[in-house]
Design a protein around this nucleic acid. Sequence first.
DNA 1: TGTTTTCCTGTCCGAACGGACAGGTCATAC
DNA 2: GTATGACCTGTCCGTTCGGACAGGAAAACA
Lengths: 227, 227
Amino acid sequence: MTMTREPAPNTGAHGTVAPHRILLVDDHAIVRQGLRTILDREPDLCVVGEASTANEAIGVLEQTNPQIVLLDLKLSTGSDTEGLALCADLTMRRPELRVLVLTTFLDDPLVVEAIQNGASGYVIKDVDTTDLIRSIRAIARNETAFDSRSANAMARSIQATPEPLALTQKERNVLQLLAHGMRNREIGLQLYVSETTVKFHVRNILRKLAVSSRAEAVYEASKIGLI
Amino acid sequence: MTMTREPAPNTGAHGTVAPHRILLVDDHAIVRQGLRTILDREPDLCVVGEASTANEAIGVLEQTNPQIVLLDLKLSTGSDTEGLALCADLTMRRPELRVLVLTTFLDDPLVVEAIQNGASGYVIKDVDTTDLIRSIRAIARNETAFDSRSANAMARSIQATPEPLALTQKERNVLQLLAHGMRNREIGLQLYVSETTVKFHVRNILRKLAVSSRAEAVYEASKIGLI
DNA sequence: TGTTTTCCTGTCCGAACGGACAGGTCATAC
DNA sequence: GTATGACCTGTCCGTTCGGACAGGAAAACA
């Protein structure tokens, strides 16, 4: 948790405009340092605080009153859920706050979840610094900012979410056992149903996952996290 | 590709010691900027060049003659192979060069591969800046530098490598396609081998993974992280 | 030189798979 | 009541799989 120089109050005077107050949230000190150096070179941007965890971020938010948050969803826990929850928390406490998600890897559904949790933009960390600054200025103008890959990811994620995962309980059970390499007969014995019934469920699983074999079903399911 | 201030020649004079010349290789401009800012604050360290690709790195190496390289294995291609190849290339050209691998995620076998390709240290990017600087000074003294997690990863990787995952390159290729639900015939067409050969590889994969079906093989492989 | 390793190819065969039918039960919702 | 959805069962049939067996070609290594 770090705080730094206080910029002029945001009531822009004649001729001179107060810089946008930015809070950095990232568990990598190196990344925070890089962002701070890059952003503080811009006269209209000012990093007013840093945080490496969700709790720190809330604390620094209260003390520094930023207008913009640069947020890496993947905080120390390794999961994205803490970052998403923080995003929702921040925008809940300060509805006027603009959150730009800055993340390492592209993850189609994550883009959508970030938006649903209040993010105004989503860019991958390997963008040029000029693109990053352009994105920050965009969200400062109450626009949204998505680099082209994130926009594509959003489109893909929306297209691919009519109802792909509407697996019933039985089908999920079958999928579990199927992943362990069990034969239809074995699955039937395990679930107290006939082999034919298992085949019935397997066919539905294949159809719903839009695949053509058990192996591919396992692959898809593990990608999505169903097993 | 970037070059900056020239430090005093390395023939340390009386009382004053020339700083260690460092080359940064990372495809993220933000990370490079952060590292540069952090390291240039230290009087005994000096960043003499940056590169975002393997080719650039070779070029900057020739022009700036660094003693230490901070290398992110995952360059723009997304794969680690380019970074590993670069690591080997660098240490081949300059045997006295010390390479500290600085990477985002921990990957047990990758630690070992990095060492085999000439790296002198391996640290995760979320270390404290003080730890990072300590690691750099360690490899400058011809020691090695591994943060505790990397050391653990090394131990695990060595322990866990009697021969469970001794899949050959071909077998890994087949496993990849197998995971996507392809039939033996399709895999053969893809890899320019006969269907029979694919069956041969599939049988070996099943045996080595100690499973009895393609679906289970996919499950195991995804658990281990092979696909 | 010979041996080992890796990769490649083939045949034969029984078991399993995946699709296309045609039904049935049961609980809940309209 | 009847419709709807989830679940269950069966037969038929062509394809695929996985195992067993029997080799050949090329490179690496002793």
